[in-house]
Amino acid sequence: MSNEMNTTSFKFSTSLDLTETLGRRAKNLQELLLHLKEVPPSSVYYHTHRFLQQHQYLSPEPPNDFAYWVKNVLGDKVLGEKLFSIDILQFGDIESLRKEIVRTLEEYINLSPDALMRFASLGHEFYFMKSVQFILPLPYEAHSLEEFNEILRQVTIYSIYYHMFDARLRLGKNDNDFSMWLKSCVREEKLAKQISKLDPYTHTLEELRTKICSLAEERLHA
């Protein structure tokens, strides 16, 4: 568990990832589809979330590796757009996200079989990766909204990432950790809902921190 919900305090943790390759590579859409159906869930998660931790500046680049590769390496802008516009927030677990990516690819290939003729050059193939995740408890504990706001300003973006993203999709909880605690332990239902409604995939992590802190402050000064 990332934080103990049976107590009234919020215990902050952080998530640190070590990247591994799976030794699988794809040079066209057919191979991408084949491997995508077989790789472990951690690989699907890695390729749809890596950019969030690595890119701390806003760019209109596709926000997941599948979309980026299809658009920039295979040069298929239409499929690239279809892939990057998949709304990850709509999926409660990795398997349903995987199914949607597979469905998008299959549907596109059926309609445009010529897309299979696009190949990546040597060294630019899609390399399937995954990450080993380490969850490290931090020596920070919030007992009130005030303390929560104060600590949130100090922790790394990896801690924010863990509580906002990992909790929901990777660890299979229904909501992000912050909202769950705010709702169940400090009875801040409105604030919890406001944070749940944020689309974290269209913010950088620093922006996300600023947004959550300003929502918390608004509530504190209300």
Partner: peptide, 11 residues
């Protein structure tokens, strides 16, 4: 990771 098994490791 060389001494601990698994894809998610709690420290």
């Amino acid at each position: 990771s060389l001494e601990k098994e698994g894809e998610t490791i709690y420290l």
